[in-house]
Structures are given as C-alpha cells and as structure tokens.
Simulated scan of single mutants.
Amino acid sequence: MITEEKILSTRHAWQQELSRAITRPEELIRVLDLDRGLLPAAYAAAKRFGLLVPRSYVALMAPSEPQDPLLRQVLPLAEELWSPPGFSTDPVGERAAVCTPGLLRKYQGRALLLLTGACAIHCRYCFRRHFPYREDSAQLDRAAGAVRRLAEDPSIREVILSGGDPLMLDDEPLAILIGKLEEIPHLRRLRLHTRLPIVLPARVTDRLCHILSASRLQPVMVVHTNHARELGSAARSALERLRNAGVLLLNQSVLLRGVNDSAHRLAALSETLFECAVVPYYLHLLDRVLGAAHFESDEATAIEILDQLRTLLPGYLVPRLVKETAGEPYKIPLGLYKLDTKTKKGAL
C-alpha cells in the first residue's frame, strides 16, 4: 500500500516542507500564541483567499505579537472584506495584456510567462489574488503555444518567468522549459520573479543552480523581500548559492502600511539585502487589488519616505519608487524630485 510517508519520501526537501505548511488560521494563531478573538475574521477572509505559509517563515515571527511585520503579510484580516472605491480584481490591467494563455505582453522587448498559479506563501496584498490562472496560465501542458509565440516575435529579447511562483515547478520540468527557450535565437536574458528563496529557501537546490548557471541565457532573479527580518540564515545561504551560480540578484518590495512604511525599516532592508549581494531594485506603491486596501500608503507619504531614505543610504542602495498603471508602457517612477513638505508636491 502507498502511504503518505512513502509519497513524502519521494519528494525533495522543499516539497516536503511545503506539504507541511500552515493552512488553517487556528493553527497559525495557536503556534504564535495570538488572541483567539482573531479567528472569526481570519476564517472569513481565508474563505476568499486561502491561508498558506511555510513553518520556517513562521519561525521568523515574534510570538504573541499581532503587529509583527512578517505576520501582517500573511494573516487574514477582516479588512480584506472591504470593497472601497478604486480597488479591483485586476488592478494593473493584466487580463487585457494576455496574448495567448500564459503569455503577457505589456512592455517593449520582453514578455511575461505565467507558468503556474501556485505559490509557497499567500501574501495578503498579492495583486494577482483574483487572477484567473485556470484560463490564463501557461501550465506545462499548454506552454508550447506560449513558447511558439515567443519564437515568432524577434523583438522579444527577455522572457520573464512568473506566476504564482515559477519555482513551484520542479527542477526537471523547469530545465525542459528553459531548454526550449534557449532554442529561440533572439532571446538573450531569462528573468525569474520569485519569493521562494526568501520564504522557502530549501527550494534553491544544487540542480536549480546548475540549470541557471549552464543556460546560454543570462540569468536574472528578482526576489521579493519586504522586511529585513525575512532574511534569516537559510535565506542568506540560498541567495549565496544563487550568486555563486552567476545569477544577478535584484529585489523588489511593496510599500506596506504596518510592515515597512518607514525609512528606517526600508534602510535596514536595503543594508541587509546588500550584505547578501542583492541589489534593491523596486519599491512598489501598492497595486490597488480588492482585499488589500488596509496596506495602502498614499503617494505623498511614499515620496516622503523615499526622501528620508535618501538621507540614510548611498544612492545605489535606494530602490526606485514606482507604481504600475494599466496601459502605460513602463512602470511610473515617483519621487524623482525632492518633496515640498508644505504642498506635498514634487519640486526641483
């Protein structure tokens, strides 16, 4: 008889860890010794967007602290049930950018390949929390059409693997896909947008590092880290393995109220990232996705925080503050000029 233990023994360490992730609000609240009064709202919000968080990530949180910045990113709250004006299920207009299942064209010279809707963690502010992955992802049985479209367009120099999280694919299927992309002569760079090296560091296997280092496509990995405490010893080790494999490492963060909305927290994040040889790349204004309004900091506040951040860090450690707007040909940079604190407007 095939037992659960037998199935688990055939999985990689990261898959075994993910199979034991916390998915029930009651367990998360019990493990962190939180007030059980949080449970009704947590269950109501989790019915709309499920809870998922690896135990190794939970271990980085402070017990008995409901405002812990890592906990706030994953704990379902009653505020997710709000429906404020200006928030939608498709905040950056991605559905209009789908040119074939799983392939999005928004920007010149590059295309985004959505490989899966699966993630290792459900961030409560996720801008794709309502995305119709069943219809519009290039899951492996449908990836051929997306690869064919990439091959037909010589203007595309870079392919971006996204999701969900592209590293939810196991190493061998990922190697097969990358091999097909390598056969397209006009592709030069392979970019992966992933949160797994941070929230599930065991995913960075020796095989994955070899796949990326051996590719003819120049590998770039954009990880997603919002707070310095996310960079524990396991994440640092995973990033070091990727760096040693020749992968250019960049980071993107989202400005989140109650998580990292202060210059000192962002400065600590940039300093810690640089210790890991990761370059702070983007600081995103929150995409206005339905269910995440309680995380939003307004644009003027964001620019003021950026201005303060510039006084604390050398320029190469200051991420670009940007917002994404549906239909625009690039991410809109904010705070290029010093903020006039009286008018809250940019000034030379």
Rank of each mutant, 00 (worst) to 15 (best):
L77R: 14
A59C: 10
C99F: 15
L52N: 04
S215Y: 01
P280H: 09
R288C: 10
R149F: 09
A111L: 06
E79P: 00
I332W: 10
E27F: 04
V322K: 05
V58S: 07
H12F: 12
A302S: 08
H130L: 04
L256E: 06
R30Q: 13
N244I: 06
Q73Y: 04
P329Y: 05
R265P: 03
A302F: 08
P40F: 01
V279Y: 14
N226G: 01
G164H: 11
A277Y: 15
R105P: 04
V254N: 01
H284I: 11
D33W: 07
V222G: 06
S297D: 09
G246W: 00
I198G: 04
R189L: 14
D153M: 03
E304F: 03
S19Q: 13
A238F: 03
L174H: 06
T343M: 00
L167E: 03
H294V: 12
V322T: 11
A268L: 13
C276F: 13
H130V: 07
L200G: 08
E152Q: 14
R288E: 10
G164T: 08
W14M: 14
P314M: 05
F49R: 05
R216K: 09
V254L: 06
D298Y: 04
G346V: 00
A44H: 08
F87N: 01
H227E: 03
E27R: 14
Q139F: 15
A277F: 14
Y316V: 06
A96F: 12
C119Y: 09
G315K: 05
L306P: 00
V159R: 03
P91H: 01
R257F: 05
R188Q: 15
L242A: 04
A228M: 01
L51P: 06
K342E: 02
I2M: 11
L187W: 07
V222Q: 01
I121N: 06
H186M: 11
R20H: 12
N251Q: 03
V289F: 13
V204E: 02
L52Q: 07
